[in-house]
Amino acid sequence: MQITLNKQPGLHISAKTREIIVDITVYLFIILFMYTAASKILTVKAFASTLAKSPLIGSYNMIVAYAVPIIEIIISIVLIFPLVRKVGLYASLLLMTAFTAYLSYMVLSGSKLPCHCGGVISTMTWQQHIWFNLGFVALAIIGLTISRKKK
């Protein structure tokens, strides 16, 4: 008896759909980074004073308070240009992973958590922030995976 094994085709997504998914991913990151960067820059003193309470940042609070929104704006600019947006997606993934690792450390270490979240999406709890960030980490991975398949 002969058994024929049919290779199951993977989830087929057309090139056009892939392109649209990558575009949406990129625009969502641009919105997130520009929105949060503006808020952080305009309330930089409050943001820095919140960071000063963090055991991981402490006296570097002013440097971090300015560096984070500047990095977010740079990544947004890189994401705008289609030729280098893949680099921007890698940078976005790295930044969101760093944010998530920092939040997770703060929550899991039992450190005293500063009450205000720098005025940015400030209604979220720290746990909700972790899930929000993980969503964007997943989005970056999806964007990168799809843009890799495009070629």
Partner: peptide, 27 residues
């Protein structure tokens, strides 16, 4: 959408996000 249109749309999105955030923060 060609690359120039995509970049232009990206600039528009970035400007709107920054402006909206600045407006709500200043308010």
């Amino acid at each position: 959408m060609n690359k120039i249109k995509k970049a232009a749309f990206g600039v528009l999105i970035a400007g709107l996000a920054f402006g909206f955030s600045a407006f709500t923060t200043i308010k």
